[in-house]
Design a binder for these strands. Structure first.
Length: 286
DNA sequence: GCCCAGGAGTGTG
DNA sequence: CACACTCATGGG
């Protein structure tokens, strides 16, 4: 099936290729393709419109795409609020098309547990391998990220063979600790309570809890701090300190849209990096 | 080969 | 509380 809808501003590369989500792939013709729920979706921007092609299709695809791209976010409002920060204002004018993405809670949780101390190309590969081996086939060779029960069937030894390294045990224990019912409960919590419960999970520390709060549970006030954000805060604001200190600074400075501020900072800090941005693996880049 | 990665867990002072 | 150390590994 094929249809179009209005989501604007939206830059697919800035949004789907900036390390929030790991399963979208850019084609040379400018389209972006990836699994979304039970669909294989191809996206293309045409002016203010977004052209969507989906297999196998269905009534719910429009809602799926709108939710994933957070179509109801008021980007003008975000920029109006964050633009009052003169340090941030310089860097964000070219990033109006970057939207925070809304990922399935379980997929997001597992993905960012995998993301600990690995670079983005490697994270992408780990997730790809898990999907290939344990996920449900959607269309062609594309498979969905494995559900909790699908992934729970894997032994830690099998997970090791997927190239997860020491993260295999995190994932294994995570599967044994959490269930769908608990995920349902977490959805009801406000950000502070949510992150508090998330850090109790195995393999989930401050940073992963904030990534999952932001991308998985859609709490826009979350501000994940990784090595790149640490550098950005030091370089642009002269701020250093431990996680809770930096987090408090971000909350005060960026308020309810700290998540967007974080993504703008992350994007620019990576462009600022010496060896290019490393957003994609070599294979994907050519 | 070397360096580093969207860190977390654990132990110690 | 703050550090220090370890964890397993592949992409650049």
């Amino acid at each position: 099936m094929r249809f179009d809808l209005e989501i604007d501003p939206l830059d697919l590369g800035q949004t789907l290729g900036c390390g929030q989500t790991f399963r979208w792939r850019a084609a040379p013709d400018g389209t972006w393709a990836g699994p979304l729920g039970d669909q294989f979706v191809v996206l293309r921007k045409a002016g203010r419109r977004l052209i969507v092609e989906a297999k196998p299709g269905g009534r719910h695809v429009r809602k799926l795409v709108r939710k994933h791209l957070r179509a109801d976010d008021d980007i003008d409002e975000v920029h109006r609020v964050l633009g009052t920060d003169k340090v941030l204002a310089d860097g964000i004018s070219q990033l109006k098309g970057l939207r925070i993405v809304k990922i399935d809670e379980w997929e997001c949780l597992a993905s960012f547990v995998l993301a600990t101390y690995a670079n983005i190309p490697r994270i992408t590969k780990m997730i790809e391998t898990l999907s290939t081996r344990y996920g449900t086939r959607i269309a062609g060779g594309v498979r969905a990220f494995p559900t909790h029960s699908q992934l729970a069937r894997a032994t830690s030894h099998e997970l090791m063979k997927c190239g997860l390294g020491y993260r295999a045990q995190y994932v294994k224990t995570l599967c044994e600790t959490i269930d769908e019912h608990q995920l349902e409960h977490l959805r009801t919590l406000p950000y502070e309570k949510l992150r508090k419960e998330l850090v109790e999970l195995p393999g989930v520390g401050d940073k992963v809890a904030d990534c999952v709060s932001l991308f998985g549970f859609g709490r826009l006030e979350a501000f994940p701090i990784d090595v790149w954000i640490e550098r950005a805060l030091a370089r642009l604001y002269g701020r250093k300190g431990n996680y809770s200190k930096l987090r408090a600074f971000a909350a005060k400075r960026f308020g309810p849209y700290a998540g967007y501020a974080q993504e703008y900072l992350f994007y620019n800090e990576r462009l600022h990096a010496p060896n290019g941005s490393c957003l994609f693996s070599k294979e994907e880049r050519k």
